[in-house]
Nucleic acid binder design. Structure first.
Length: 737
DNA sequence: CATTCGCGGGG
DNA sequence: GTGTACGCGAATG
């Protein structure tokens, strides 16, 4: 075997271990690649450092290279590359950190080693490679930016552990599903676990689907049986399962929980329930992501898209001979994307009055912010560059910053192929071309890379962030939205509202063709792609609490001409709304979708009342699935840190009491058992303990359904109380019952 | 009533 | 990459 797909790569001592698969059969080889970093300092001090390192034998080798050390500086300078014995790397970190105070600057210290290897060797995970029999030279047979690549034929297996009562419960059976299905339930617990290791060896899959929860259970039980070191689920028999703890971290005002990363060395373990990318865009999306970002698939399946775009930027820096500073140099004020979004709200004012409209068209810019960065060459080093003169370089609207005309920025270099690629995939899907289902998953994966790249420009600790670049993007955005609105008005449209990358317009009798024509005009004016999202039969913008006369943009719903429903911010979009409530609200929206005007809309309140009554009956009579009653929320604190005995606090405390650890950021599902009980402990039950057929608070769920119905008539003079009175109207209810 | 808590949004 | 939007609705005490 001399060819295959690069499946997995990880450091081991001073080597990198590479696994190449042909689908169910893989082989590995090692390439010498010790950890290294770069140092810059004045000439004399660099020589002194080199001498010192060699004398103390902390380095394997040192050598001078010419590299760029600052993104805004294009001159290559002499820097020292230091290769270190892997065992001494961690010991060295605090020592070199102290040297920073004495004028030394360190680079590429915290670049993940596997990725660094791939950047340098021009290889990428999931790419086709050839190698010599000894494995000493490996070569890419693939183009990272090709769109018609052959994805690796991966052999897959699903593993499932029973029982799931507790993460500490003894493993009674492990089920395998792949080419064949079988269950390991004989022998004692330790034997069952070791049989699972043996079964993987025999099946030899490339991909193992196994949830983090099940893996933790196996890991804990193996520890209890003293066989942790025998948990070698990977192809690499020298590496046992690592036992990490999950981590909670804070981001954008929310606590997130990150599962411990426990890779299967030489295979890929995918957690189908805790991989955002897998859930959103499947294995096709993950393969696309790993190829583009160079983060080994197993790892990128657990990380955020932001890590992916960051990796692509570092890869570009390697290409440009630019070193990666250890820590970001210039800390600056951080403004979140959403904060800016808030500022933009003042851009256009809604006409006051009722929130019900008919004949409204919505047009949206495609990937607006990334397109602006690409088109206007916005990057940390191009905005207010040192090489161009402010007078003749193009300038940013409002703030007047000039942008470099001599050099293409690092960020646009990364974004351009992504935009082009996504547009190509979307076009293929639209035309129904063969391979299109996979193309749709691929374009979705790219979408997330594009969405995050703007946020990173304004994030003060991002490696390639700069607040002025961030400002430039939003300034261009406002300018383009404003110009679009003007173009729309010139074409006879009334601009109802505009926000960031969307405009809601009205012109009596305007057809799809009219809107397409307008979009073309706007593309001409702004240079960006814009398209018709759809023409609404009707749309309702819910009133703001601050000023009930003014509708708000983050809570609205409506029906397009083709009957498709679009809703934002209402119950059915919330992840903590129980399924039964979501279904009822969606059914009501469908009933309303046929309405042609306000009168017809209001008339249909009767149908909504019937729907609510039907759901009430189901709920009251116990004709519902437990699944549909579960409320799922993210715990922001440890169980004992809550100040109120709220539903989430009680649920996490109940779990905690029985030894199920609940980390901040983890999702907790619970059923409301008796919301009005004076004893908070009686009010809710976590799903883990909730038994089929036990009681739930029917009144509470019915109330939620009524509320969800009332939302659809909010601002039209019918509130919750009114809806409730219609539903509970005695005589009619008796007729129904 | 004040306070606490979790969610949204990009396709 | 540990970044602490901000407005809202619902629940607690």
């Amino acid at each position: 075997m001399r060819e295959g797909w690069l499946l997995d790569i990880y450091p081991d001592g001073n080597d990198m271990v590479l696994w190449v698969t042909r689908g169910g059969s893989a082989r590995s080889f090692r390439i010498h690649y010790p950890p290294y970093f770069y140092v810059s300092a004045s000439e004399g001090r660099l020589d002194a450092l080199r001498g010192g390192m060699e004398e103390e034998e902390v380095s394997i080798s040192t050598g001078y290279e010419l590299k760029r050390t600052r993104i805004r500086d294009y001159e290559r300078r002499r820097v020292l590359r230091v290769e270190v014995e892997s065992g001494r790397f961690n010991y060295l970190i605090p020592r070199i950190q102290s040297l920073e105070e004495r004028g030394y600057r360190f680079f590429n210290v915290d670049v993940p080693r596997a990725q660094g290897f791939l950047y340098e060797r021009d290889l990428f995970p999931m790419g086709r490679v050839s190698f010599s029999s000894l494995g000493s030279d490996i070569e890419s047979l693939d183009d990272r930016f090709s769109t018609d690549y052959v994805p690796p034929p991966l052999k897959e297996v699903r593993m499932d552990v029973q029982p799931k009562t507790s993460i500490n419960a003894a493993v009674e059976s492990i089920r395998f599903e792949g080419e064949e299905e079988f269950e390991l339930d004989g022998g004692n617990e330790g034997e069952r676990i070791l049989d699972a290791v043996g079964a993987l060896d025999e099946l030899d899959p490339d991909v193992v689907y196994l949830t983090g929860r099940d893996l933790s259970q196996i890991s804990r039980r193996a520890a209890a049986r003293g066989i942790s070191s025998e948990l070698r689920f990977g192809r690499d028999k020298t590496r046992a399962l690592s036992r990490g703890r999950g981590k909670s971290y804070f981001s954008y005002g929310t606590v997130y929980y990150k599962q411990p990363y426990s890779p299967f060395f030489g295979r890929m373990r995918i957690d189908p329930e805790n991989s955002f990318m897998y859930e959103d865009s499947g294995m096709e999306g993950l393969v696309e992501l790993a190829r583009l970002t160079k983060i080994p698939l197993q790892k990128s399946s657990t990380t955020s898209p932001g890590t992916g775009i960051s990796s692509m930027q570092i890869d570009q820096a390697y290409r440009d001979g630019l070193l990666i500073p250890w820590r970001k140099q210039e800390p600056e004020e951080f403004k979140s994307a959403l904060q800016l979004l808030e500022c933009d709200r003042g851009g256009f004012i809604f006409e006051p009055g009722k929130g019900f409209y008919t004949g409204i068209g919505e047009i949206d810019f495609a990937s607006m912010y990334p397109s602006i960065m690409e088109r206007h060459n916005i990057s940390p080093e191009t905005v207010l560059c040192d090489c161009c003169d402010g007078a003749d370089a193009p300038s940013v609207p409002e703030c007047g910053y000039h942008i470099c005309t001599r050099r293409r920025g690092l960020i646009p270099k990364v974004i351009a192929p992504l935009l082009e690629r996504r547009a190509y995939y979307k076009e293929q899907v639209r035309r129904g071309v063969e391979g299109a289902p996979g193309y749709d998953m691929r374009q979705k994966a790219i979408k997330w890379l594009l969405v995050t790249c703007f946020g990173y420009l304004g994030y003060k600790n991002a490696r390639f962030g700069r607040v002025e670049a961030h400002e430039a993007v939003t300034a261009f955005g406002r300018d383009k939205l404003f110009k679009s609105a003007r173009a729309a008005e010139e074409a006879g449209y009334e601009v109802l509202h505009g926000i960031v990358d969307s405009l809601w317009l009205k012109r009596g009798g305007a057809t799809e063709d009219d809107y397409e024509e307008l979009c073309e005009r706007i593309e001409g004016v702004t240079g960006l792609r814009i398209s018709l999202e759809g023409i609404y039969r009707w749309i309702v913008f819910l009133p703001s609490k601050m000023d009930p006369q003014v509708p708000v943009l983050n809570r609205y719903f409506g029906t397009f001409e083709d009957g498709e429903i679009k809703a934002r911010g209402i119950e059915l979009r919330r992840s903590d709304t129980p399924g039964i409530v979501k279904r009822a609200q969606l059914e009501m929206l469908n009933a309303l979708s046929e309405a042609r005007d306000l009168e017809e809309y209001v008339e249909r309140i009767g149908r909504c009342v019937s729907i609510i009554r039907r759901y009430s009956r189901w709920i009251r009579e116990g004709d519902v699935d437990v699944e549909d009653l579960i409320i799922s929320r993210r715990a922001s604190k440890a169980p004992w840190e809550y100040s109120n005995l709220s539903s989430i606090a009680v649920s996490s405390l109940k779990l905690h009491r029985t030894g199920k650890t609940v980390k901040p950021g983890q999702f907790i599902g619970y059923v409301v058992t008796d919301s009005s009980s004076p004893d908070p402990w009686e009010r809710v039950e976590p799903v883990e303990f909730y038994e089929e057929g036990s009681r739930y608070d029917a009144d509470k769920y019915i109330d939620d359904v009524i509320r969800a119905g009332a939302t659809l008539f909010e601002g039209l003079g019918y509130g919750y109380e009114f809806m409730r009175s219609l539903v509970t109207d005695g005589s009619r209810q008796r007729t129904l019952a």
